[in-house]
């Protein structure tokens, strides 16, 4: 019995030390990286989603996003939903604002939006706007879940027809 405890505690100690060491050696890395990596602008082709003038279907469209900080990728991608050059399509997020889109290490993307009252859509508009946001986010493989907040708050619905899940998972 005593032996087991001894073995266990030794094991725990070893793990603790290993973890501690790991952390220490990992710490300087991000700092090094920022020095090495130049703030070079990246260009990425992504799909953005809109709807047709029947407000029936989600229509994908290739767009190009540019960003220098990798962290800005998601917010930049979402902002493409706010407008389109294609006259046949409707941008569902044109009057709303994307405040932030932050990805955690575990793949949890949290998107904070501001939806002014005059941006409130009808039933199908809301559903399609939500789908457009989710599809745009989930096209990045590293995004595992998407949690949408309105002005930083976790609410039941964006516009009063479709419920939000906190978070949405990739289906």
């Amino acid at each position: 019995m005593k032996k087991t405890i001894l073995v266990l505690s030794t094991l725990l100690l070893t793990i603790a030390i290993a973890a501690g060491c790991g952390q220490k050696s990992a710490d300087p890395q991000p700092g090094d990286q920022t020095e090495v990596v130049q703030p070079a602008e990246q260009t990425l082709r992504i799909q953005s989603f809109y709807t047709d003038d029947q407000i029936l279907n989600l229509v994908p469209k290739d767009t190009e996003i540019k960003f220098s900080d990798a962290k800005a990728k998601y917010l930049t991608a979402l902002k493409t939903l706010q407008q389109t050059d294609d006259e046949k399509l409707i941008a569902l997020w044109d009057k709303s604002e994307f405040l932030s889109a932050t990805l955690k290490d575990d793949g949890a993307l949290t998107i904070d939006v501001k939806i002014p009252e005059d941006a409130h859509l009808g039933a199908s508009g809301e559903d399609l706007a939500l789908q457009a946001l989710l599809k745009t986010s989930f096209q990045f493989d590293e995004v595992k879940t998407v949690d949408i907040l309105v002005d930083g708050k976790s609410v039941d619905s964006l516009m009063g027809h479709v419920e939000l899940e906190h978070p949405f998972s990739r289906n």
Binding site: D53, I55, I90, A91, L92, D94, K95, A119, H120, L121, G122, A123, G125, H161
Partner: peptide
């Protein structure tokens, strides 16, 4: 009962 809205 609802009334609809779209930016067009």
């Amino acid at each position: 009962i609802h009334a609809n809205s779209i930016n067009k």
